[in-house]
Design a protein around this nucleic acid. Structure first.
Lengths: 338, 338
DNA sequence: CGTGGGTGGAAAATCGTTTTGTGCAAAGGC
DNA sequence: GCCTTTGCACAAAACGATTTTCCACCCACG
C-alpha cells in the first residue's frame, strides 16, 4: 500500500501533546490558537515530515487537489500523426508546473471518443484547450458540474469571461504587417477549416487588413483531418491560380510540412521566391528549412493565466473577463530576404 | 463544490431497500449475496447513475486511483525547444488512455528541478520514462515509497524486471541491415551522449555489427543539451574527415534538424548522395524533406505494457522480467534510391 | 460573589466508502 | 429436539483529515 506507514495527524498531535483538531487548525491557519502553540506544532509537523493525506482532506473538504487538462487531441490511429504538436506539450508541461506550485496536480483526460466520459472526473476543475463548436468536452463538464476555464475562446460564447485568449486577430495583423514591410504585396492565407474560434478570428483579421490596405484576398481553406495532404493541395491550387503570391501565412502549425513540401515540389525557394510565416510557433516552424517566422503563443504564460483563473473560479470569485496573453513575433529566415 | 449533489451509496441503498453494505458488496462482487438481490441493486445503481466517490473509496482502500507519469523533460527555458518531442506526447496520450480504461487517471509530474519533489506524490504508482544514471526521479520515488515501472531500462540496473524496454540494439542492427541492403558500405552513427541505457545499447550494437560485417566504425558523439548545433557540428566533422560516409544513422530524434541542416549546407542530397535513417520515429522524421526512414518505437504498445506491469506490481505480483516492445521499421524516402 | 465575555483548546460530527464482525433464519447432522 | 452449519443481510468500525460545537478557564465588571 502506497500510503502505509505515513505519519498521520494523530502522530503529530501525540508528539506535540495536543489534539488532532489543534494540529489541523495550527497547520491550516484556522481557529483560535496561541501563536506559540501554533509555531510549536508547525515545528513538530515539520520534524516528523508530516504531510496531510490528500484523500482524507479531499473527502471532508470536497476538494480533490486535482485539476483536469483536456487537450483537443483526437486519438484515432489515422489522424494521430499530425496532431502531436509541441504547442500542446509545452502547454501541458507549463500547466503541470503552475498547478504543482500551489499543491495541485494535473491530470490528463483521454480524448472524448475513447471513453464517452461515463466516469465522473475526479477533479475539482478543468482546463479545456481550444474549444470548438458544440464541444463535447464542455458539455461533459457542464453535465458533471465541473467548473472549467478554456484556453482560447469558446466559439459559441466568445465573451465567456472564464477564458484565456490569444489575440489571434492581432497576431495575423502582425504577420501581415511584417510580410508587407518585407516587400510582399500579394499575401495568401492558408485558413484552417476548424470549428474553433481562432480560425474565424484569423479569417476576419485577414479580411479587415486586406480591405484596409487595398490588398487582394488570397485565402485557401484547408481541412484539418489530413493536414499534410490538405495543405499541399491548397498550396498547389494557390500556385496554379495564375499570379504567384509573394508571401504565404500558414494559419495552423500542422500545415507547415505540407506547405513546405508543395513549395519545394514546384521549385520555389523560401524566402527568395516566396516569404512564409506561421500563426503558431513550434517545433515544425523552428526546425523547418529555413526556420519559419512565427508567432509564439507563449504557452507558459497561458498556463499560468489559466491556473490563476481556474483557482479564482473555484474560490467563487467574480470573473474579470477574458485574459489575453500577447503573442510574440519570432522573425526567422523564412520571411527575411538577406 | 464539484462533488455536491452526487448520488451516494446511501441513496442507492435507500432506493433498493437494502443497507449501504449490501450495495457495496453487490457492486464490487464481494460478500455472499443472493444473486437476485445483487442484480436488483446493480439495476438500481445504474438507474440512479451512481458512481462511487473515488476519494471516499481511496480513503478506505488506500489507493488513489492516480498514476504518475514522469517524463524526462527538463524545463529550463534554454533547452525546452528541442525536447518537446512528439514521442513523449504520444506516450502520454496512450498512457492516459490505457489507465483510464481501467479507472485510473494519469497525472503529469513537473520536471525535477522545478520542485525538488518535497511534496509526496498523491499517486499509487509511477511510470518513469527514459531513466538515466543516478536519476533523481527514481531516487525520489524510492524515498517516497511509490512503486514504479520504467520505460527503457535503468542503466544502473539493466535487469530490473519492472521495465518496458525497446530492443534498441536490435533496432540499430535493423537500420544498419536496411542501409547496407540499399548499397551503403560506410555507415556512420550519430551517437547521443546520454546517460540513458539506450545510448549505450546503440553504441554496442553498432560496434558488434561493424565487427561482424568488417565495416569501418564511424561514430560521432553528440551532446544532448544543444541538439541542433551539436548534431550540425558532428555532421560537419564527419563530412570533413575525408572519405564520405554513404549513410548516416541518427541516434536520437532531436538530432534530425541539425543533421539535415548540415547536409543541406554542403549540398549533399538525401538520398542521392547519402542515405539517412533515424533510431526514433516522430514528427521530425516524418516531416523532414525527404521523410526519413525511422524505427517506430510504438509508444502506444509501450504504454499498454507499462500500465499492465504497474498494475501487476501494485497488486504484489511477481515480476515477469523486462517486457520488450518490438519497434517497427518505417522505410521512407531518405534511405531508398529510386 | 455572580455573571459575561473572551481565550485556548478538545470532543464530536462529518465526508462516502470498504471491511469486519454480528445476527437471524432455514437446513442439516446426531 | 438440540446443536452446528450455511446463506443472506445488516450494523458498526475503520480510513484521516476538516469543521462545527462545546467546554473549561480566566479576567473584569457590576
Amino acid at each position: 500500500m502506497a500510503i502505509a506507514g505515513r505519519t498521520t495527524i494523530r502522530d503529530v498531535a501525540a508528539a506535540a501533546g495536543v489534539s488532532p483538531t489543534t494540529v489541523s487548525h495550527a497547520l491550516n491557519g484556522k481557529g483560535r490558537l496561541d501563536p506559540r502553540t501554533r509555531a510549536r506544532i508547525q515545528r513538530t509537523a515539520e520534524r516528523l515530515g508530516y504531510q496531510a493525506n490528500r484523500i482524507a482532506r479531499g473527502l471532508r473538504s470536497g476538494r480533490y487537489g486535482v485539476q483536469a487538462l483536456w487537450l483537443p487531441i483526437e486519438q484515432d490511429a489515422a489522424s494521430s500523426d499530425a496532431l502531436m504538436l509541441d504547442y500542446y506539450m509545452r502547454l501541458a508541461s507549463a500547466m503541470t508546473k503552475a498547478f504543482f506550485a500551489r499543491g495541485d496536480v494535473v491530470m490528463l483526460i483521454p480524448p472524448v471518443g475513447s471513453t464517452g466520459m461515463l466516469v465522473p472526473l475526479p477533479a475539482d476543475g478543468a482546463i479545456v484547450v481550444d474549444p470548438y463548436v458544440d464541444d463535447p468536452r464542455l458539455a461533459a463538464l457542464r453535465r458533471l458540474g465541473v467548473p472549467s476555464v478554456t484556453i482560447e475562446r469558446n466559439p459559441i460564447d466568445p465573451e465567456d469571461p472564464w477564458c484565456v485568449a490569444s489575440d489571434t486577430g492581432h497576431h495575423i495583423e502582425t504577420l501581415l504587417e511584417h510580410l508587407a514591410s518585407e516587400g510582399a504585396e500579394r499575401i495568401a492565407l492558408l485558413l484552417p477549416e476548424s470549428m474553433g474560434a481562432w480560425s474565424r478570428e484569423e479569417r476576419d483579421a485577414y479580411r479587415t487588413w486586406s480591405k484596409e490596405h487595398g490588398c487582394e484576398r488570397l485565402t485557401r481553406p484547408v481541412p484539418m483531418h489530413d493536414p499534410f495532404e490538405g495543405a499541399r493541395c491548397a498550396v498547389r491550387t494557390l500556385l496554379r491560380s495564375g499570379s504567384l503570391p509573394e508571401a504565404i501565412v500558414i494559419g495552423a502549425e500542422r500545415f507547415v510540412p505540407g506547405t513546405m513540401s508543395a513549395l519545394a515540389e514546384v521549385g520555389l525557394a523560401v524566402p527568395d521566391d516566396v516569404l512564409v510565416a506561421v500563426a503558431v510557433d513550434g517545433n515544425l516552424a523552428r526546425s523547418s528549412a529555413p526556420p519559419l517566422t512565427a508567432v509564439d503563443l507563449q504557452p507558459e504564460q497561458q498556463a499560468l493565466a489559466a491556473a490563476e483563473l481556474l483557482w479564482n473560479r473555484l474560490d467563487g470569485e467574480e470573473p474579470r473577463g477574458p485574459w489575453t496573453v500577447p503573442g510574440i513575433l519570432r522573425v526567422r529566415g523564412s520571411s527575411h530576404r538577406p
